[in-house]
Structures are given as C-alpha cells and as structure tokens.
Design a protein around this nucleic acid. Structure first.
Lengths: 187, 187
DNA sequence: GAAAACACTTTACATATGATAAGAAATTAC
DNA sequence: GTAATTTCTTATCATATGTAAAGTGTTTTC
C-alpha cells in the first residue's frame, strides 16, 4: 500500500482520513504471467495500480491482437474509455509477468469525492496527467515514423525489450512484427 | 454566455454563485479568419470555448504544418499538454473562419475550485471526456487506414469539407494532400 | 475585373510497410 | 533433456503513401 500512497503524493497530498478511506476500498491481488486481469466486454469498475510486474491493454481488430498500451511498476492501468463512459470495453488487460496489483473499486472511489475534496483533486490531477500523456501519444503515432517511435520507446522504457515480446511492441508501434524485425535488423 | 452554460449542463449542474464566478473570469473575443488565437511558444493559460466558427490546433514538424485537431461550434479548444504542465506549447491555435470565442482565464478558474466544489467537478468531467476522446483518437489513428479515417471524419463532421481546406484535413489524417486527393479521387 | 496568390489534382517514380511463407532461435511442457 | 510450441528473422512480392513537378481551378487583392 505504501507504493500507492507514494505515487499519490506526486500529484496531491491527502489527509489521514482520506488515506484511510481509500485503503478501505482497495484490494491487493496477485496474477500469474499471461493471465487476464479484465476481459473484453467487461465494464471497467476498477482502477489498478501495478505494484510489481508488467501489464498491457489490448484488443482485436479483425482477429489481429493489438496492444494499445503497456504499464510498468508504480503506474496505473485503466481502460479510461470504459471507466468514464460506463460502457463495456472492447479492450482487455493482460499481465505479462507474475504481477501484484492494488485494485481500487471505482464506484466506491467516486462516492468518496464529495466527502473528501482532496481525493477528487488527487484523481482529477492523475487523469489530467493521463490526458497529457495521451495527447503526446497521438502526436507520436501520427507524425513520427515507426523507426522514430521504436527508438523513443526503448529510450523511455529500456527494459520493455527484456520484459515484453516483440510482437506486442510491434502492434503498439502500429506495425507488424515483420516490419519491426526489419527496423531492428538495420543496425 | 448562454451557449457556454448550456454546454456545461451536459457535464455538471452549477449553483448560481458558481455561474456568476465563472462569468466574471470570462471574456468574449472575436477573431478574423486565418488569424492566430495563440502562438507557438506561448504557455496556455486560457480555456477557449467556440461560440461561432472553426479552429484548429497545429504545429510544425520540420517546416511542415501539421494539424493536430479541429474544433467546431460549442466546443472547447485547449492545448492540454501546455495547460496541465505549465510549459510553453509547441502548438498554435488558429481560427479558420471569422469566429467568436469565450476565453476563460485558467489560473483564475483553478482558484475557484476550492471555493466552488461544483466547478472543480464540472471541469474534472469535461477533461475526463476529453481523455476518452483522445484515447479513441489514438485507436483511430493507429489501427485504421487513411481511407477509413477519412470516411469516419466526414461521417462524424460532414461540414468539415466545406469549412476546412483539404491540406489541413490531410495532415490531420496523417497523410499528404496528394495522398488525400488520391483517396478522394477513387470514388 | 485582371493579376497574383493559394488550393487542389494528376502523373511518374521512390520508398516504407504489409502479406505470406519458410526457416532459425528461444521458450515451454512433459 | 527432448519434443512441441511459440517467437523472431529473413526473403519475396504487392500495395499504400511519400516526393517532386506540372497543370488546373479557385480566392484574394487592389
């Protein structure tokens, strides 16, 4: 739980009561490598925090498995488009190593917003940061070549190569494994 | 001002005092076609609402003008990555028709969050919706062909063709004007 | 309303990525 | 530890998009 509150501190400080209230709606869970945390068609009602391990959000486009994002230690894993619309997600969350997560029940969390103004501010800021990241990702996908994106990925998250199969990295970059292999082969 | 509060109502209801407080930090401005609302290097401290007209956010990649997004009537225009980081933006906002906007001073707005809980909730929800839109845009850019993206653009915003030069639409779709012309020519 | 500037299309050629298939390397299962 | 499975690379060919340049059409300017 310490790691979660340490993560929160980067965004907003919380009163003791607020921390207690959050702790009460959290569960620690362990999942084995390659298992699914949440599946396609399920409506997201949980905000996950990765204590240990790697996760990816993925979906299928015409039978092809496509990775939308990776998450590493000390970060959130959330399918925002389902969490904030209340609609079933077309995406699933899978864990790529034996992992430990903290699961925060989002309906309970949102109920805390009125009582604990600092909790609402905290998550507002977390989601604002997620918006900034996502805007930057649009820029990176739209206007950089696959090679540029590959290079910045391994710069920003060097251990992704050791921890994530290349086929997932390829679809995350928007290319086929064959194409990624070519890019890697050039050097 | 009515149009702005009508827009707000879709997300969260506001007390009379909150509406008054927001009205006090708003300015209505008019801008002529093709003029810049905010320029590259400027740090975003204003949230714009388009009453009338069309706007785009754009930047340069190696001397090439690239459109990141369009906004039409009754929507926000914000460079989130600057607003939420406090860093100068690499992007500019330009108006593509004679336009009228409501400018909300963001520093003043953020100060209102503590006094008016309903204002914080309102903007939290607005930005959560923006996050959902941006996540969906990532999906659309990454995993659909230019032709698919062109078709869904004209389906979702049919008058974009009448109101926006094709060269801007092309870069928004992530392709050159030549390529867009080819796609359009096929039919 | 003529000249200039800008926007759009078309053509020809170059290049990056995709699809498919086959083989090599690594991992997993028993 | 061997076989089976999965992952990654390489090769070939097809296709979509990029670049450059020329031509046509439309707007703007005075």
């Amino acid at each position: 739980m310490t790691s979660l509150f340490h993560y929160f501190k980067k965004y907003n400080s919380l009163s003791k009561e607020a921390e207690k209230a959050i702790a009460e709606i959290c569960k620690v869970i362990a999942i084995k490598k390659n298992h699914e945390l949440q599946s396609i068609g399920h409506t997201c009602k949980t905000i996950y925090f990765l204590k240990k391990g790697v996760a990816r959000i993925y979906y299928f486009k015409e039978d092809i498995d496509i990775t939308e994002s990776f998450s590493f230690e000390n970060n959130m894993v959330v399918r925002f488009e389902s969490l904030f619309t209340g609609r079933p997600s077309k995406k699933a969350i899978q864990v790529l190593e034996d992992s430990e997560l903290i699961a925060i029940n989002s309906s309970e969390l949102f109920k805390l917003y009125d009582k604990h103004h600092d909790i609402e501010s905290l998550f507002r800021k977390i989601f604002e940061a997620a918006l900034v990241d996502t805007v930057n990702r649009v820029e990176s996908i739209q206007f950089h070549t696959a090679e540029e994106r590959y290079n910045s990925l391994i710069k920003e998250a060097p251990d992704v190569l050791k921890r994530v199969p290349l086929k997932y990295i390829a679809s995350y970059l928007g290319i086929t494994p064959v194409s990624l292999s070519r890019i890697r082969g050039q050097k």
